[in-house]
Amino acid sequence: MADIDVTGLVKRYGHVVAVDGLSFSVQKGEVFGMLGPNGAGKTTTLEIIEGLRAPDAGTVHVLGTDVLAHPGTVKERIGVQLQATALPDFTKVREAVELFAALYRQARPVAELMAEFNLEEKADAYTDKLSGGQMQRLSIALALINDPDLVFLDEPTTGLDPQARLNIWTVIEGIRQRGKTVVLTTHYMEEAERLCDRVAVIDRGHIVALDSPRHLIAANAAGTTVEFARVPGLDVEALRKLPGVDRVVADGQVSLTTRTPEVVLHALLDPQAPWAGAGSAGGDGEGEGMIRDLVVRHGTLEDVFLSLTGRSLRE
């Protein structure tokens, strides 16, 4: 049985339909991402699955238990990080961990958890004096206090600087390595691509696509683009005939679009090719050919979202 089974989930706020008939499953041990812009219904969906909100229609089973009927049972076995990191005022880091440990029937040793998340040094600091990254580490540590089988992370890296974001990604990869199932929401493509086994692209309360990031990109994005400078004498027509090239645009520079970048690159860099080595004389590099300033750009989930909804993620 899947760790999460959601069928026909609907949630309305007045006339606004926030979640419009969502159905999906999350398998044990996978990292499942929910990708979409603000207001797409990600957080509402997550909070229904966590037992924090009641849906207007639909069923939710978490770890084999009906959440709507037995929220307490489910909450005992899941770990939750809310979008807004909320802890009581005037509480020190160690106290926060101890407080949450007291709220579960079984909790991991406080010291062990603090060591694992590098929080010992800040143990006696008030939580509101932590940096964004430290706060997020604490928040994830609290989500793991009951050693849950299933962890929910709502926008775990929003608002963090790149260094702190990388740090949190390592933390999440660590959680996955211990065999836990992770459900996370994000509106960062890199995050979904790097961390998630499968991604549900959500727009206006609907799942518009659900697959692994690689398949989503392959199916929906234009593919990989190989770009390089247009050096005089380069035979653009010959490039068009290369195997695997779908499209060539040549203006100030040359852009090749392909779904098989390995094949195209191999042909482009073939030392026997007409554009290899014998380029315009006097190049500063030794034996430099006509393919210069080469850049390979992969399709991204951003492109996927754009092609699925016609809108940019950050709108």
Binding site: L52, K75, E76, L82, F100, L103
Partner: peptide, 18 residues
């Protein structure tokens, strides 16, 4: 009210405590 506005109550509710 402050705990509610800052979502602290919500965080507590995500635990099994009634």
């Amino acid at each position: 009210v402050e705990m509610r506005v800052k979502q602290v109550l919500r965080r507590f509710r995500a635990t099994p405590v009634r």
